[in-house]
């Protein structure tokens, strides 16, 4: 990890108006949680449905996508990455620094609000908030790593990442049950299932399997991104 790279990435990602735009999305989640608490009262199934559908299935992947590709994508796009690559810092180290910022950003803006939304809606009952917070936390790490890799591999990272999040996890997952075993969303939900004491969430993947797959994906994606950055070719704009 390199402090300077971390600082520059952090400023590029969250400098100016961008932090406020990201914060707006977190505030949206929290305000919906508050509204539901007022309208519905305390209903743990509602909490699980809401956090499952909005936070874990939409907000966390979207944040992972925007932040994960945002830490390196624009630099590759406008070619200014060459100034970073020409410094005597190893490429895997650059990736690590970028990943730290991406993961921290996703955790801060998506996982923490998920946990707080859970607290607002269900309090500490049944460790529901904790379960969803933990799921959002590991999903944030996994999505950041995957989408950072994607941003190094292709210039259309956001689009392909979205195709994975919407078509694979959403559309295909609802028709083809097998697709669900290979989905970050289900892996992280297995953690919720294990932590929450009430039977409100079910995942298609067992916890042990999910844990191993998550670890493999996070480490593997980060390692491979480092390798790909070593042989990065800068293409012109088509």
């Amino acid at each position: 990890m390199n402090g300077t790279v971390v600082r520059l990435t952090y400023r590029a990602l969250l400098g100016g108006r961008r932090a406020w735009l990201l914060l707006l999305m977190s505030v949206l989640l929290l305000s919906m949680a508050v509204l539901l608490r007022i309208a519905v009262g305390v209903d743990h199934q509602v909490t699980a449905d809401f956090l499952g559908a909005v936070a874990v299935a939409a907000l966390v992947p979207l944040f992972g996508l925007i932040v994960g590709t945002g830490v390196i994508g624009p630099e590759i796009d406008d070619g200014s990455i060459v100034y970073l690559l020409s410094k005597p810092i190893s490429r895997p180290k650059i990736i690590m620094s970028k990943l730290v910022v991406a993961a921290a950003g996703t955790v801060l803006f998506a996982a923490v609000p998920t946990f707080v939304a859970g607290l607002v809606m269900s309090g500490t009952t049944g460790r529901i908030a904790l379960g969803f917070g933990a799921a959002a936390l590991v999903a944030s790490l996994a999505y950041s790593a995957i989408f950072l890799l994607l941003a190094v591999v292709t210039r259309h990272a956001v689009v392909y990442g979205l195709a994975y999040a919407l078509i694979w996890e959403g559309l295909l997952g609802s028709f083809v049950p097998g697709a669900r075993t290979l989905s970050v969303q289900q892996w992280s939900l297995s953690l919720t299932e294990a932590i929450a004491t009430r039977d409100i969430v079910s995942s298609d993947v067992r916890l042990a399997v999910a844990g191993v797959l998550l670890a493999v994906v996070i480490v593997g994606a980060t390692w491979y991104a480092g390798q790909r950055l070593r042989v990065l070719t800068l293409a012109g704009d088509e």
Binding site: M32, L36, F50, A53, V54, A58, L62, A165
Partner: peptide, 12 residues
Amino acid sequence: ALSFAAVSALQG
């Protein structure tokens, strides 16, 4: 995507 997911969940 976010507005669709949020609206569908709230509607449900």
